[in-house]
């Protein structure tokens, strides 16, 4: 047991990687690209919210910073998209570290932390909607240039594998966190901050580390979004929609679990698509369902889809214990 838990990551990613060989339907691939994008953004939220217990309502701040950095560097400064992608992630992480430093230093937690992150995201949205460098109200359009060097691809499958690779990377990072002392400290802070501090955990450093990793992962989603859609405006990049999707996926999938965001994103996006097929392209209907599912999950399945699945198929390690328990009762 040198590397506990990585086998399942490899299996899940390998299975998903085969999808483009099974179907070449652009509709299905596009659907999966979006679901994986939300899974990535949600995984970012999950590191801070799920493992660290700090519920952010403003992950759009990181998503938008990643997206705008990649786009603006290309459009305004002619910097290639590949380094732009990396700079975008770094910029998102930096914004996360700054917001985290300011908020945690002031001891903001719970609802206050949610509010202050939301406010930061809104300030960035308003600034982006008037600043000339982002194209203000018109938005930023990345020139169509379908070449590998420009991070633009003819085939959806390539985009799919790239977002899958990013999701895979995020899964590995989360697994590493789970297996590390940092992860243990993070969970300790989530469960009881004062007790963790009394045991010698540097609470500030732990939270700040989680926030920076969280912001970087979510910013990667933003960078990918910019390359995939080639268009941004303030409402897309910094809008509340992405903050909501970022927390929806892990909470519905299973908060604080490695596969929660992926499961949640697939469930949520499938529900949204199903709703569109039943009623046609009515605006808002998918979001009505998301909101209702959110309330239902919080009310009835606090451990999300992952918790429900576990109840149906208990983990093998636990199964014998339960079987014996059952026998002794007989």
């Amino acid at each position: 047991m040198k590397a506990p838990g990585y086998l399942s990551v490899v299996a899940v990613v390998a299975a998903l990687a085969l999808v483009p060989f099974v179907t070449s339907s652009n509709v299905i691939l596009n659907f999966l690209v979006i679901a994986l994008l939300i899974a990535l953004v949600g995984q970012g939220w999950n590191v801070l919210g799920g493992y660290g217990g700090q519920y952010s309502f403003g992950h759009a701040a990181f998503f938008g910073t990643g997206a705008y950095t990649t786009a603006v560097l290309q459009v305004q400064y002619g910097i290639n998209a590949w380094p732009g992608f990396a700079i975008g992630i770094a910029a998102g992480a930096l914004v996360g570290a700054v917001i985290g430093f300011l908020s945690f230093r002031s001891g903001l937690k719970g609802s206050y932390f949610a509010l202050v992150t939301l406010a930061f995201a809104e300030v960035l949205r308003i600034v982006a909607s008037v600043a000339p460098i982002t194209g203000a109200g018109v938005g930023t359009l990345i020139r169509l240039d379908v070449r590998f060097e420009a991070f633009q691809f003819q085939s959806r499958a390539i985009f799919y594998w790239i977002i899958l690779a990013l999701v895979a990377l995020s899964l590995v990072i989360v697994r590493m966190i789970e297996n590390s002392r940092f992860g243990a400290r993070l969970v300790a802070v989530r469960e009881n901050e004062d007790a963790a501090r009394a045991l010698g955990v540097d609470v500030m450093a732990t939270k700040l580390g989680a926030m920076t990793i969280s912001a970087a992962i979510t910013a990667a989603g933003g960078c990918f979004y910019a390359q995939y859609y080639l268009f941004l405006d303030a409402g897309i990049a910094y809008g509340p929609w992405i903050s909501v999707e970022a927390l929806l996926a892990p909470i519905i999938g299973g908060v604080g679990t490695i596969y929660g965001p992926l499961l949640g994103a697939l469930v949520v996006k499938t529900l949204g698509e199903a709703a569109k097929h039943v009623t046609g392209t009515a605006p808002g209907l998918d979001l009505i369902i998301y909101g209702a599912v959110l309330v239902l999950v919080v009310g009835f399945a606090p451990r999300g889809v992952a918790g429900l699945l576990e109840r149906l198929w208990p983990r093998r390690s636990r199964a014998p214990a339960r079987a014996e328990e059952g026998k002794s009762r007989d």
Binding site: I288, G291, V295, V298
Partner: peptide, 19 residues
């Protein structure tokens, strides 16, 4: 949970009105 439930309600109301 209250944060999330009220957020869910907000999303439902806002989009029901949009619909």
């Amino acid at each position: 949970n209250i944060l999330l439930v009220t957020l869910g309600i907000a999303v439902v109301i806002e989009n029901a009105l949009l619909y």
